[in-house]
Structures are given as C-alpha cells and as structure tokens.
C-alpha cells in the first residue's frame, strides 16, 4: 500500500578509491540517461542499502496494513462489501510479496527481512498504527490511505531500480480498485441516515491528519531526499506529494458533503492549491517511535502469526525433502535394474 520516507541518512561512507569513483560516475550517467538498474548490475553499496530499506519497509507496510482492515472482514455490512474487502486484503498480501521479491533481488533474503520487522528493527508506515473503530474507517482507509498511497506510488513506477519499478506498476493497477471501493463506502454512508453520515464524518476527522503524515516529514527536515532524488528513486519531494494529495482529495470530500477537520484549509486562487493547516509532527514522531495507538498490538499480531505458521513451513519443507528422497531412490532403483 505505501512506503514512507523514514530513513535516516546513510552515514557509512564508502571507501572511495579512484576506481570506485569511476564506477560511481558511470552508474550515475546510466541513471541520468533514464536507464533502469537491474539486480546483477554494479551499484554503489549505499544505493543497494537505501533501496533494500525502502522496498522492505514498503513490503512490511503492505503486510501490517492487512491488520486494521482484516479487523472488519467478519463484520462487513453486506456480502458484496465483505467480498470486496476480502479481495482488497488479499491484494495487500500480494503487494507485500511482490515487494519482498523485489527487495530480495538486492541480496537480502526474505527470512532476514521478516526478522528485521519482527524484531522491531524495521519500520512500516505510521498510518497502520491507528485503530479501525467503525465500518466507516474501512471507507476512509480506501479513499484516503490508498489515495495517498497512489500519489506516492505512481512516481515509483519510474524508479531507477527495475524490479521495484515493475512491482509498482502491478501494485498501482490494483490500488485503483481499493480507492474506489473506499470512496463508494463513504458515498453510501453519506447518502444514508444522519447516524451513518456522522460515522463517515467521524472517520474523516480521525484519518485526515494521519494521512497527511504518511508523506513523511516536511522537506525542510527531510535529510535523505537529495540523494534519493539524484538516484531517481524519489521523483517528488514529500511536500510536493502531500500537496498533490490535498488538491485531489478536498473536492472529493466536498462532494460527499463532509467537512475536513482543518479550520485553516482554504483555496489559494493565485497558486491553484488548497492550503492546509499545521501538521502535528510530534504525533508523527511518537507513532514512529512505537507509541501510536496500536503499535504494540500490530507487532504482537505479526509475531503471533509468524510463530503460528512455523509448523506449516516446517511441514512443507519436510514433505518436499521426503518427496525428493523418494524420487531419488526410485531413479537409483531404475538405473540398477537397467
């Protein structure tokens, strides 16, 4: 669903010999020429590390992102909504797997990436640490969270790293369904009873600000963006993407007849942009530091699921080994008989 620009600057300086510098220059020339970098190509170690971290955080976000929505599968109001939500959650699992595969091409195994998440060494998007209290939250997540994710992910389809770009193309195609199903839920609630509309408004009130935080810290405080932009991993800054999202979303909310929880929200005629109020970055920092409403619950659910699945992984591997042994024994017997 989403990757967040959380990475601290990479401080491990490469040992820069003249040969290394020449390679790095050739690498940058390929990037500047809009060539795609493929797994076996030479790349600077920092590029590899940055991408491994970004793609795996993105994958973790997809996987953890199933939890808040999974919460409502059994209580979806109709069979149609339930089928759609199941399909959406299944998509998120698929997105996580495409992304783990892309990350693995950089040389870190999926098992290691899982361990990093489960041990709390890897981050995932801050947005999934908020609770889904009512059915309207499922609408708000599809409309706003997936809407924000699309803003962020469309430029990633042109990322310089081939496997990541290709994974993002698949993800973006599927994500469009997610946003539309969410908006339709909101629309249905807004055209329903006053209680239903109030539920939709309450969901917007709770999700709006956390969604704006999804784009990461303001450009002035974001340290790592320069290098990512130079490597064509990131094509727009956090603030640029946030502004695009606000501009696209405000008219959609007005059509629903809802009010955004921001008294400072106003249209700037001259610039052609919606101007929004101050974001509470302290809240963002707290959620990232593990102190959001659901951080501990999400991590516990992931760890429990991983531990509960251990016997399945073991059994599958044992079964495969047994079949391979039997096939080998059969081949031996045939050879001796011949």
């Amino acid at each position: 669903m989403y990757t967040q620009a959380l990475n601290a600057r990479d401080t491990t300086a490469p040992v820069a010999g003249p040969e290394e510098a020449a390679r790095a220059a050739r690498f940058q020339a390929r990037i500047d020429a809009e060539e795609r970098i493929e797994p076996n190509d030479w790349m600077p170690e920092a590029y590899r590390r940055t991408l491994t971290r970004q793609i795996s955080q993105h994958a973790h976000s997809e996987i953890v992102g199933m939890l808040p929505e999974g919460n409502w599968i059994t209580r979806a109001p109709t069979l149609k909504r339930k089928a759609a939500l199941l399909a959406k959650v299944q998509d998120e699992a698929g997105h996580g797997l495409y992304l783990y595969s892309a990350a693995e091409t950089l040389g870190t195994s999926r098992e290691e990436l899982f361990d990093q998440l489960l041990a709390g060494r890897a981050k995932y998007s801050s947005i999934f640490n908020y609770p889904t209290l009512t059915w309207a939250d499922i609408g708000a997540i599809g409309w706003l969270v997936d809407g924000a994710a699309i803003m962020n992910q469309i430029p990633l389809c042109r990322c310089s790293y081939g496997p990541y770009a290709r994974a993002m193309i698949r993800v973006c195609k599927e994500e469009s369904f997610h946003q539309r199903q969410g908006y339709e839920i909101m629309l249905t609630l807004c055209r329903g009873t006053p209680e239903q509309k109030a539920m939709a408004q309450d969901a917007l009130n709770r999700w709006w600000w956390p969604c704006l935080m999804m784009f990461g810290p303001p450009d002035a405080e974001s340290q790592h963006s320069d290098q990512s932009a130079k490597w064509k991993i990131k094509r727009f800054s956090n603030d640029e993407l946030r502004q695009k999202f606000v501009d696209a979303t405000v008219p959609q909310g007005q059509y629903l007849g809802l009010t955004f929880p921001d008294p400072d929200l106003a249209y700037d005629e001259a610039a052609g942009h919606w101007r929004y109020g101050a974001i509470d970055w302290e809240e963002f920092k707290q959620v990232l530091a593990g102190n959001g409403p659901c951080n501990r619950q999400r991590m516990k659910q992931r760890r429990d699921a991983h531990a509960a699945g251990a016997w399945v992984r073991e059994a599958a591997m044992a079964h495969a080994a047994k079949r391979a042994r039997r096939a080998a024994a059969k081949a031996d017997a045939l050879q001796q008989a011949a």
């Binding site: 299944q90 595969s101 999926r110 079964h319 495969a320 079949r323």
Partner: peptide
C-alpha cells in the same frame, strides 16, 4: 516475478494466488 515455495506444486499454487 518470483516467490518462495517448498516444492513445485506449492509454487504453482502460490503463483496462481
């Protein structure tokens, strides 16, 4: 793309999903 699976039958099933 790629995926992880213990054997060929599970790989096909996972590829479908």
């Amino acid at each position: 793309g790629s995926l992880h699976a213990a054997d060929a039958a599970m790989a096909l099933q996972a590829a479908r999903d």
